[in-house]
Amino acid sequence: MTLNWKAGGLLLGLVFFAAVLLVKPIGVSTQFVILDGIIADAVSPDLVTQTDGGYTSGNAYLAKSHGKYAKSVANPLNYSFVFVIAMIAGGFASVMARGGFGSGDSRIPALWAANFGSSPVKRYAAAFVGGFVVLYGARLAGGCTSGHMMSGMMQTALSGYIFAAGAFLAAVPVALMLYRKEG
């Protein structure tokens, strides 16, 4: 089941260290852009185009930093994208090892239900809106909890500290307001 914080934190720290030792610091939110790009490029194949030295795109965001994102869209079998796909498998293996789907708090989160009832529609709507706001914010910030907060602060990056300040300054008051009852 859930590890105690010392064992869990130590293991998580070792994973972050292994990533920077062997390849590069962990990050996730960019891959939402890459998947968007892959989908959009499949619908409209002119979105990402090859140039002499690399790739570019009609979308200014995919084209920025010399087409770095455009290149990943054109070659999905790259480290960062495969990394995120492998995270899904890691979550699946962990849940199977601790009793499979539907065990414990797996449908409507208990804390949500205690405060807002067990209507799935309400919960799914909140998750959808939350996902939209989080990824919009993560792209504006240039990273998320993994890339900015954990990888960033671990490397003593100034940007990681700025990001963490903003994230907790909003997250704690919103959570105190939303979750008034324990669950």
């Binding site: 939350g130 996902g131 989080v134 914010g137 993560a138 960033g152 990056a157 700025i162 704690v172």
Partner: peptide, 27 residues
């Protein structure tokens, strides 16, 4: 190392609000 700019803080605020609402971060 990622760049520091004002949008890092603004994006952090947005992410924080959505994080609390949904209970998920991207990872």
């Amino acid at each position: 190392v990622k760049a520091a700019y004002v949008g890092v803080f603004l994006g952090g605020l947005l992410l924080g609000a959505g994080w609390a609402l949904a209970g998920f971060c991207p990872g």
